[in-house]
Design a protein around this nucleic acid. Structure first.
Lengths: 116, 116
DNA sequence: CAGGATCCGTGACGATACTG
DNA sequence: CAGTATCGTCACGGATCCTG
């Protein structure tokens, strides 16, 4: 963590890249559950992420797949079924997810201790 | 990091909270520069974040201030000047920012090694 | 210089209905 | 069940002008 202007600019660019990759209302949540569960069916994901619609889930999953963060596998079960799995590269995001989770948990306590 | 359903739901909630707090196109970048520079004038921030407009910068700063992540101080200089500073609580976000930055940097290498 | 007021376009997002 | 197609909306975000 050096503090020169050039390094700072590069750091900002890196941040921008990551944020853009995880843009959208649901991507972080999707990655968050897949990092934990490793693998999940479309319907399970939909149930696990309250409020998301099929269209949005489908779209976000496609974008995540394009970026090599997850894989999509069609299982030939009775009614067709699709399994989404996090890739090794996607697992790389785990530290970010973990930080977001622990910060959010602490934030709850913070709000509470301020008598909210 | 236990793996029971209840803990999972709580974790998702925490993630959601954090993401919401940092929602918007610019908040993470603003926090990112303030975590580094600690304190900055409005105009410096605007120069430091390419593409942002005065209205957006102002709005995002207000929301960050409401959430106790930064402070706003009016300096009575010749033409008035406002200084934004990260709070101790705001500094708490540093691990998240750091993770985003290092991941983004690695992502660049990843894309390069895949001959893009 | 900081930032509010106003106007406006775009696209992200949602609901519904439909196919294989 | 998984996904697409179609349609509609609203708020996010940008450009410009104006004030203390």
């Amino acid at each position: 963590m050096i503090h020169e202007p050039a390094a700072c600019a590069g750091r900002m660019l890196a941040i921008r890249d990551t944020v853009e990759l995880l843009s959208g209302k649901w991507k972080i949540q999707i990655i968050g559950t897949l990092v934990f569960e490793n693998s999940m069916k479309f319907m399970e994901l939909k149930r696990n992420i309250p409020g998301i619609g099929a269209k949005m889930l489908s779209k976000e999953l496609q974008e995540l797949e394009i970026n090599q963060l997850i894989t999509r596998t069609v299982c030939d079960t009775k009614p067709i079924t699709v399994e989404y799995k996090i890739t090794p590269y996607g697992l790389t995001l785990e530290p970010i997810i973990a930080e977001l989770a622990t910060w959010g948990a602490n934030h709850r306590k913070h709000l509470f201790s301020n008598s909210n």
